[in-house]
Amino acid sequence: MARYAILKLIYSVPTLLAVLTLVFVLTRVIPGDPALMILGDQASPQAIAALHVQLGLDRPVWMQYLHFLANVAHGDFGKSLVTGQSVVDLAASVLPSTLELTIASLVVGTVIGVPLGAWAAIHRNSMPDALVRAGSLLGLSLPAFVFGILLLIVFSVQLGWFPVISPTGRVSALENLRALALPALTLGILMAAYIARVTRSSMLQILGEDFIRTARAKGVPWRMVIRRHALRNAIIPVVTVVGLYLGVLIGNSVLTEMVFNRPGLGKLIVGALTQRDYPVLQGLMVLYTLLIIIANLLTDLAYGIFNPTVRLR
């Protein structure tokens, strides 16, 4: 298992390198001089030249590239052009809340989606199935911000159960959980719509398999057949799909963060984009890549846990 993980990590090095190169090239071909961006159009040519030397922009491109890679290897992504904060510090300050939201919505999505999908498959073509399918369709077509705003209006504004704006700074664990509830529910329920759909079709396929008939033929009660034999197999493709969705989830949390006014990577990246804060943009792109690589690795490991036929390889 450990060997498998290490191997996977080694395989992701080329991916990472490709992304780094892409990021480097992108920031070089974007029109505009970073020095001008920092100093403003009124800057003297001397000041601009000095900054070029400072930023290393006077050196040949291949040296800049190597320099960039070396910096990344040291965990140095430069400073924000806007606030002057180090990019790493900026990212580190919002990463926990993004991870928190991602994991919480994953849990919500799985806990709601898997049982609903299985329930629909078992009662195929009857009322429960129709309900789950309609609900899932609704969830898949509803934009996150619409759903988020709905939840916000009902539970925060009307009922006052949850804060309207997420508190910043240090808060108690309970406060934190309360602030997390609605955003996680928003993303989680939308994810559940997706998971339910995948679980349903996977379950339908498994229920038609020979080994289900074998289990019935040996007298295993139907409920146990479902739990021990069907669900355990049906969950395998769900793991992969959820893993793929995880990357999308990290990327798409921005709307939810805006609606609930939560700090997070999504908000940070949109901010950096509108302010043309290239070092921040560059750093966050690399961070996203890393997160997605890690998410894929975890998915592979989880897949191995659920599916013994790959475990041995």
């Binding site: 020979d210 080994f211 033929a217 007298g219 021990r228």
Partner: peptide, 28 residues
């Protein structure tokens, strides 16, 4: 009824199938 049948299946009357490759649960 199904509950009665479950007591007979496997205990009184058992069955083996044509396709051994798919008759067993792959994850158990």
């Amino acid at each position: 009824p199904e509950s009665e049948l479950e007591k007979i299946r496997g205990k009184e009357i058992a069955m083996i199938f044509q396709e051994p490759m798919t008759a067993l649960n792959p994850v158990m």
